[in-house]
């Protein structure tokens, strides 16, 4: 809580810099628009203006600088514009009684969320199974671990269009499955590494104690190793879900996607509506924040119940 004041100060500074940056970023577009509306602009014509620096333009046309803050298609929208657009595509849709309209971000966020959760579940499962295999089998450890590391140095996005083509050829309709595969790929590694650490967390003395109790391998797994790994699991789940969201959005970026936050970014790019791109980006940020916060809460509650809270 003591961090609140600094965090908000820094946020306020960032927003301030953003507002200041809007003027030089948008001045050319603003002057073009003013000229088309018949106003006098120095120098005339957008081609000669390209040779003049933005600072010079702002000085010479100080009356028109304010125009840059209310453009319909700005190069850099103001935070206010982004906020308005976000509200228009979420809150206003709810007020109109059509919260799941395809023009609204709630629908697209929901599509992205679904794939993210499927990919997250799949990746977590893979990560846990892999970790158990690595902890219990030396062969698996020696064979899998280097490849798990190498797999993360491979830019998965190179594979994304490929996975989409493959799954449509195999006969899987829609994009849900390929997107989930991509996010599972990004999400399994943190879980794997965290779980290997967690399953190895019990000390030899504790394992020996269970052996003196004549516990079977399964019992010592369920009663000792698994509970001991829970804090590690939650920490890596938080990294994993953020990675899964990145994966889903990357999966929505290659051409052809229609729904999802990534597709909104793509469509915004194709139709030249920067506000749609910016609002989709911020919606993705909100989604990421919400998911990580939820897992953080789950971690606190679970650890408290297990008596492991720090």
């Amino acid at each position: 809580m003591k961090n609140l004041v600094p965090v908000f100060t820094v946020l306020a500074v960032i927003v301030g810099i953003w507002y200041l940056a809007v003027a030089p970023m948008n001045v050319r577009v603003a002057l073009d628009q003013a000229e088309r509306a018949g106003e006098v602009v120095v120098p005339e014509g957008s081609v000669p203006r390209r040779a003049v620096s933005v600072w010079r333009l702002m000085l010479d046309n100080s009356d028109h600088v304010a125009l840059g803050y209310a453009l319909e298609r700005p190069r850099l929208p103001t935070p206010g514009q982004v906020g308005q657009e976000l509200w228009k595509t979420t809150g206003e849709m709810v007020q109109k009684g059509r919260p799941f309209s395809k023009r609204g971000l709630i629908y697209h966020g929901w599509i992205t969320l679904q794939s993210t959760l499927w990919g997250f579940a799949l990746g977590t499962l893979l990560g846990i199974v892999g970790a158990v295999a690595i902890v219990y089998s030396r062969t698996a450890q020696l064979s899998l671990m280097p490849w798990a590391i190498i797999s993360q140095t491979i830019p998965i996005v190179a594979l994304a269009p490929m996975i989409i083509v493959l799954s449509s050829q195999v006969g899987i309709e829609g994009r849900g499955v390929p997107k989930a595969i991509i996010s599972a790929y990004l999400c399994f590694f943190p879980v794997l590494v965290g779980m290997v650490k967690g399953l190895r967390a019990p000390q030899p003395a504790q394992l020996d104690l269970l052996r003196t109790y004549n516990a079977t391998g399964l019992q010592s797994f369920l009663r000792l190793r698994l509970p001991a790994s829970v804090p590690y699991l939650f920490t890596s789940l938080k990294v994993g879900i953020a990675a899964a969201l990145v994966g889903t959005i990357v999966g929505e970026l290659p051409t052809g996607a229609i729904s999802g936050l990534g597709a909104r970014i793509l469509i915004g790019d194709q139709f030249g509506t920067p506000l749609a791109i910016w609002s989709a980006l911020f919606a993705a940020a909100v989604l990421a924040g919400a998911l990580v916060t939820l897992l953080d809460l789950a971690q606190r509650v679970t650890l408290k119940r297990m008596g492991m809270a720090p």
Partner: peptide, 26 residues
């Protein structure tokens, strides 16, 4: 600044920043 920027930096590092690609191309 450290106390203010660290949480924000941590949060931004977890965001899908690839999405800014079309803006940068623009």
């Amino acid at each position: 600044l450290t106390r203010g920027l660290l949480p924000i930096g941590n949060f931004v590092a977890a965001l899908p920043i690839v999405g800014i690609a079309p803006i940068m191309v623009n």
